[in-house]
Design a protein around this nucleic acid. Structure first.
Lengths: 166, 166
DNA sequence: TAAATATGTCAACATGACTGACATATTTTT
DNA sequence: AAAAATATGTCAGTCATGTTGACATATTTA
């Protein structure tokens, strides 16, 4: 990579912004599209992947917590979650303290599917991390954290950092 | 920010991947949603914003080049582009050498709209950059560049780096 | 003159989001 | 004990943005 293009001091504020948003757009677009083919073979889409991921990361997550985390409506969640439950990838346990609650877990089948979906995406991201270098990865995390809306940041960072960096 | 959570050496590969993808998801989601309200007052969406942006960045862009850059179909582009042309934000010039081509430019009105849409998003991103620090911004750019699919990277980086870092 | 190319349009479909209202089951409050 | 509140699910309709495949016009190239 031509280092001059990554030298922040040779960029005006406007140029920094343009480069930031364009790289974010293309990097995100390409990264997020990686699992599309695998998802499609199961009749699933990106929203299904998202549910599988966050339920896997937070076993016992309540439906209301998931709605809040993903910032989507009940209808949006229900449409996708129902399919995952029906097909046996997610199971809903009744809350032991509050039996109205539905606590979400991946089934073994769901975990296997998630692993399969994630496999190449993980490989791709780790390869990108290796190429960019450890310090760049730390910077990447810092900028992204700072891009998260103030009102969401604390909760999101708590969840993202769960069980790591200790 | 608690530095320990950004210490890459205290993360396994799996943890690096999880943190990367989750921060990318939330950072992108929140950042991209900023202009939604302004867009909506014009009856526009994110796809309109995208067209305005890339046409503004590449005056004289051919329709086919835009299709290739955004990796979408003619139908998708046409639906959105037509509206922008009809409402006077984009104009199509006939190519002087090849009169079949349509060369896209923002009108003054379109540039004004783009400036308005972009204003708070830019402020937000620059604020995030300031918070994270110059070295983090360089890392951010490097990781995102490496996340772009191999087959897209050269062309995208050429366009992104146009007129900057010299 | 025929073939190829650049672009536009059409209708139908898919995915994933939203609104607003209504429903059941359970817990909490009165 | 009854009413109110809460957790979740469902419904129908709507919207944004993507795709497919076919067909069209205008222009350039062979």
């Amino acid at each position: 990579m031509t280092d001059i293009f990554f030298n922040v001091k040779k960029h005006s504020d406007h140029q920094k912004f343009l480069k930031g948003m364009e790289l974010l757009y293309f990097g995100y677009r390409d990264f997020i599209s990686w699992p599309d083919d695998v998802l499609q073979t199961y009749g699933f889409g990106r929203a299904h992947h998202r549910i599988l991921h966050f339920v896997g990361r937070n076993p016992g997550l309540k439906v209301a917590e998931l709605l809040d985390l993903l910032n989507i409506t009940k209808q949006s969640l229900s449409r996708v979650l129902s399919t995952l439950v029906e097909k046996g990838h997610v199971r809903q346990d009744i809350g032991s303290i509050d039996r109205r609650q539905r606590l979400l877990h991946l089934t073994e089948q769901g975990q296997n599917l998630l692993d399969k979906i994630t496999e190449h995406q993980k490989e791709h991201m780790l390869k990108a991390f290796k190429k960019a270098g450890d310090q760049s990865v730390e910077g990447f995390w810092k900028v992204l954290s700072a891009l998260i809306a103030d009102e969401n940041r604390t909760e999101i960072l708590d969840r993202v950092n769960k069980d790591m960096g200790e």
